[in-house]
Design a binder for these strands. Structure first.
Length: 120
DNA sequence: GTGTTGACCACAG
DNA sequence: GCTGTGGCCAACA
């Protein structure tokens, strides 16, 4: 099963992350809680770090109009820290900021307005 | 099996 | 507001 390429924990993280709509963001704690591990925020970051389907591989395009062609991509750039900070990114936080901005997320002083873009 | 590392979180000072 | 400390979970050497 190719699904078992990663642990169930990682798969849950990817799945929860994929639920984040374009223009919205979620925190590591939020993802962790969504998968049933409210204290696994570290594990979430760890899973996303090894995420093989990161958006960073793609260019700054808007998949809003794309049809089912979207395979199991994980918008890890939509996952930020609880304080709104970008945090880290496998391809560099710089790219993460660019991706978020490209989706309409306003970043002020390197932080995202969670009260405005946080997705539950 | 133990210790270390990691894209973290919450709390205290 | 920043820094330091303790804690949780998972993967790796």
């Amino acid at each position: 099963m190719e699904n078992r390429e990663q642990s169930q924990f990682c798969l849950r993280v990817y799945r929860a992350t994929r639920k984040i709509p374009r223009g919205k963001v979620a925190t590591y704690a939020q993802i962790a809680r969504a998968i049933g591990h409210p204290r696994a925020c570290r594990g979430v970051g760890n899973a996303l770090n090894k995420n093989p389907n990161s958006y960073s591989s793609l260019s700054l395009r808007s998949p809003a109009g794309r049809r089912g062609a979207t395979k199991t991509l994980t918008p890890c750039h939509r996952v930020v820290r609880s304080n709104g900070s970008i945090g880290g990114f496998a391809s560099g936080a710089k790219k993460k900021r660019a991706l978020l901005v490209g989706e309409g997320v306003v970043i002020y002083k390197g932080k995202v307005d969670l009260k405005r873009y946080l997705y539950s």
